[in-house]
């Protein structure tokens, strides 16, 4: 199957997904959904990486995407653990309540 889709289409969809992720971080106040929006942004960046890697004919972009996936897996594990602790301490996860560093 011939590659007939221009690179710019992939970059456009990547930009749209990234902007929607940023919008999600800004408008939602449930930390779990904010977190998922961050994942969406990481994913959009990965898509741009792979598209550029394909365009330039190098594999380094794919390898970087692999590392980004690993780091985001670690980040999700730690972030969800923090959300669980906050829920344990405050019995709520509304971001409006997370306004103090003391427990």
């Amino acid at each position: 199957m011939a590659q007939t889709i221009p690179l710019s289409y992939y970059l456009a969809i990547s930009a749209v997904l990234f902007a929607m992720g940023a919008l999600g971080v800004l408008i939602r106040r449930n930390p779990l959904i904010i977190f998922m929006s961050v994942e969406l942004m990481l994913n959009a960046a990965n898509l741009a990486f792979v598209a550029f890697a394909r365009s330039f004919g190098v594999l380094t972009g794919q390898i970087f995407v692999f590392f980004v996936m690993t780091v985001s897996a670690a980040e999700v594990a730690v972030g969800l653990a923090l959300i669980i602790i906050i829920f344990r301490n405050k019995h709520s996860i509304d971001v409006d309540l997370m306004n103090s560093l003391k427990g």
Binding site: L47, A51, F66, M69
Partner: peptide, 26 residues
């Protein structure tokens, strides 16, 4: 999209790591 871009390894890693592991954790 990754499959269309000729990156089958990344596509499958995406399904197993993101759609599988990370979202199940969520």
């Amino acid at each position: 999209f990754y499959l269309l871009l000729g990156a089958p390894f990344i596509a499958l890693a995406q399904v197993t790591i993101y759609a599988g592991a990370i979202m199940v954790l969520f």
